[in-house]
């Protein structure tokens, strides 16, 4: 496993160096201006971009063809890529928490940290869910098609929601939202921003995303076991 992780790290060293430069620049901008949303976006983008690049490099060198001749279980080849993906997400989240936290503490005091952590948790859950689908698509279809499938998966629900809100008359939307609040009373707690509910929801989302990630890994392992080279 360590060898396989090292391989990805060596391979992406050059890309990592360039991206680090951007991170330093936007990090400095965030600290100086007190605005870290661009840095957060960049961190999220890098967390997705690095694993995709690793898949592309695998394909261009036909690494998998060579790897299956080595005494490495195919399952391990897949698992190591998922671990690498988690590693990227972990490092980027840590950076987001640290820089964002620093900026917030400087500007508003320690009380804002809780909201910041909560936001990071939600962002991580969404990214993890996206990466679960993405990794499975990349293993199944390869980086070329897989990337398109991944983008489609990410864009379609957002596009559908946007279309829904645009096409629906405002009155009907309000009626629907009222009905939802009546049917599910705990939603009011979110609306009012009660921390216990928000934290529970964030942790639930993270747990669900982790479960998806695990299932995605299992699916990719099975696919890899059957794949011919």
């Amino acid at each position: 496993m360590l060898g396989l992780l090292l391989k990805d790290i060596y391979n992406l060293k050059k890309t990592g160096r360039t991206l680090s430069l951007f991170l330093v620049l936007y990090g400095a901008f965030a600290v100086l201006s007190g605005e870290f949303s661009i840095l957060s976006g960049l961190c999220a983008m890098i967390a997705v971009l690095l694993p995709i690049s690793a898949f592309s490099l695998d394909q261009s060198s036909q690494w998998n063809v060579y790897a299956v001749t080595l005494p490495i279980r195919r399952r391990l080849l897949v698992t190591s890529r998922y671990v690498f993906t988690l590693l990227c997400l972990g490092v980027m989240t840590a950076l987001q928490i640290l820089v964002g936290g620093f900026v917030l503490v400087q500007s508003y005091g320690i009380s804002e940290m809780s909201d910041h952590l909560l936001t990071c948790l939600f962002i991580d859950s969404v990214l993890l869910f996206l990466l679960s689908l993405g990794c499975a698509a990349l293993f199944r279809f390869g980086p070329e098609k897989g990337r398109i499938v991944m983008m489609a998966i990410a864009m379609l629900p957002a596009a559908a929601l946007l279309l829904f809100t645009k096409l629906m008359p405002e009155a009907m939307l309000l009626t629907l939202s009222d009905a939802a609040f009546r049917a599910l009373p705990f939603l009011s707690a979110f609306k009012n921003g009660q921390p216990i509910y928000l934290w529970s929801a964030a942790l639930f989302c993270l747990a669900a995303s982790l479960l998806c990630f695990g299932l995605s890994c299992l699916y990719s392992c099975r696919y890899m076991e059957k794949q011919e080279f």
Binding site: G3, Y10, W63
Partner: peptide
Amino acid sequence: QGFFYEELSPKQMNTIL
């Protein structure tokens, strides 16, 4: 067909393999 990554050197290959 298929071997190691274009960007890596024999030294790095050794570390990995």
